[in-house]
Design a protein around this nucleic acid. Structure first.
Length: 482
RNA sequence: GCCGGGUUGGCCGAGCGGUUCAGGCAGCGGGCUGCAGACCCGUAGACGGGGGUUCGAAUCCCUCACCCGGCUCCA
């Protein structure tokens, strides 16, 4: 793939597909809204984070140097309330779930984040920003806190297409001290006995939107490339971020590409804690491999909603099996010295499909199409292995590296394989004995060996080229308990 | 009420004006097999309803229906 490929992304701000051009050459600054750490994360969160991980992987593969920053919201009413219930300090509870979050991310092979930033570590920056907004008269102080005056920022609503004057439907009781019901809190006054900080505007806690702009202003500066998050956050959260940052710095646009993922739903309704229709990441990982979950989540375009059902994850399991099988078919091919015409053709065709894969990814990160390209590729390799069965060392290496390359972009990992020497020898012995038994038509014993091996996770396959074996992909639960 | 998104074959899901209507799962027929599995070859089947534009529409326009998200903490 050409370095600095012409990647197109859908920008919520312009409501159109745009060519991606970072501000500073090959350097990309990307921020994604992270979790509020008061409970375990569920598959809805996984959907978003798997996508941005894949985006970061792809950008890096395309030659960009990506600084991927994510916040950890550890200051929040939900954390305070949950901590009170459990008799813990809010930050103690937050640290616990922050750890659980990292564990989940690690198992999901989400490794592309460069820095996680906790809200509680950015109080000085938050203060500085609030002071600046007050100084420039974008904010005002009341007895309940400090609020951003949305009428002072004429661009308010540009991201979500909302008109401030039409935002009349409010489902919460308006705070009467605010000038406008749409004004949002920068600082919220809280009782002394609650978790909080002293500030120039009294004791309390920061508003929800301010931590993200404080964090990105510190690490990225006044302007950066990509801001990600789920579509539910576009209003009011991201709108408020724009208002804060652009009013504070005077630089527009604060973010050049606003990228939003679609929601994960369950029977058509958003998966969420409050609806109680959620499946935690760890529960899902007890039933399925992380690779399977990634495939399930990447099977649909990132902006479309995904409706969750276990049987669909099951389908993804079959998809992943197909990938593993094809990879093994490739590795198990016998070596020849001279490349046949068929092999040359295959290599050429695979090269074209690899190009297709990259084109799919360049086209607004169309992972569903990219997976289809991958499957087409594997079908060709399977057919070749089935028909010819012979390949040069170089050809095998080239194909295997293509597989690894593409799988890595999608964050998929193939474990097992047939190169574990000790096991290899033992299993080879057993299979040799079984082959003898089969020749003698002692199938009962032969099947017994096959069944017992399967119980321990070794799959046997009798083929015209002889008996092959592989270690079954273990679920995360199984591999953890090893 | 306002803003945004969606409705593709049994299931999932690309495609967004015209090459054979991607790809996967599940079917069906065959191959390879002692059996099984994997794999291969072949096969079928769709664009929510109604109008319109066009030589040609799943793709553009209008309209109707249904579904979802945001306007409240939320990935």
């Amino acid at each position: 793939m050409t370095i600095f490929a012409e990647i197109k992304v859908y920008n919520t701000l312009s409501r159109s597909l745009e060519e991606f051009k970072p501000l500073y050459g090959k350097r990309v600054f990307m921020f994604v809204c992270g979790p509020t750490v008061y409970d375990y994360s569920h598959l809805g969160h996984a959907r978003t984070y798997v996508f941005y991980d894949t985006l970061a992987r792809f950008l890096r593969r395309a030659g960009y140097s990506v600084f991927y920053l994510q916040n950890i919201t550890d200051v929040d009413d939900k954390i305070v309330n949950r901590a009170k219930e459990e008799g813990k300090h809010p930050l103690e509870l937050a640290r616990e779930f922050e750890q659980h979050y990292y564990e989940d991310m690690k198992v999901l092979n989400i490794t592309s984040v460069n820095l996680y930033a906790r809200a509680s570590d950015y109080l000085p920056e938050i203060f500085e920003q609030i002071e600046g907004l007050l100084r420039n008269r974008y904010a005002y102080v009341t007895e309940t806190g400090v609020y951003f005056d949305i009428t002072a920022f004429s661009d308010y609503g540009k991201l979500s297409g909302q008109k401030p004057e039409e935002l009349r439907v409010h489902r919460i009781e308006p705070d009467l001290t605010k000038r406008n019901p749409g004004d949002f809190a920068l600082w919220r006054a809280r009782p002394r006995d609650e978790f909080g900080w002293k500030s120039p505007w009294g004791y309390g806690r920061p508003g929800w939107h301010i931590e993200d702009t404080a964090i990105t202003l510190k690490h990225f500066g006044k302007q950066y490339d990509i801001h990600g998050g789920a579509i539910e956050l576009s209003f009011p959260h991201h709108e408020a971020e724009i208002a804060q940052a652009e009013s504070f710095t005077g630089v527009k646009p604060f973010v050049r590409y606003w990228v939003h993922t679609g929601l994960l739903t369950v029977e058509g309704e958003k998966m969420s804690k409050s609806l109680g229709n959620f499946v935690t990441i760890r529960d899902a990982l007890e039933r399925y491999d992380a690779n399977v979950l990634r495939i399930f989540l990447l099977s649909r375009h990132y902006r479309s909603p995904i409706d969750f059902r276990w049987d669909l994850v099951d389908q993804a399991k079959n998809n992943f099996d197909r990938i593993v099988n094809s990879y093994n078919n490739l590795l198990e091919m016998d070596i020849t010295d001279e490349a046949s015409e068929g092999e040359l053709k295959l290599i050429k065709k695979i090269g074209e499909l690899k190009e297709n894969f990259f084109n799919s990814m360049k086209d607004d990160i169309n992972t569903a199409q990219a997976l289809a390209d991958l499957f087409e590729m594997m079908k060709l390799v399977n057919a070749y292995a089935d028909g010819h069965g012979l390949i040069t060392e170089g050809g095998k290496l080239s194909l295997a590296s293509t597989y690894n390359d593409l799988l890595n972009i999608l964050g998929l990992r193939i474990k097992g394989g047939t190169d574990i020497s000790m096991l290899n020898n033992l299993i080879t012995i057993l299979i040799g004995i079984r082959s003898l038994l089969r020749k003698r038509r002692e199938y009962e014993l032969a099947d017994e060996i096959r069944a017992r091996l399967r119980e321990t996770g070794v799959e046997i396959q009798d083929t015209p080229q002889g008996t092959k074996w592989r270690i079954e992909e273990l679920s995360e639960e199984e591999s953890r308990s090893l």
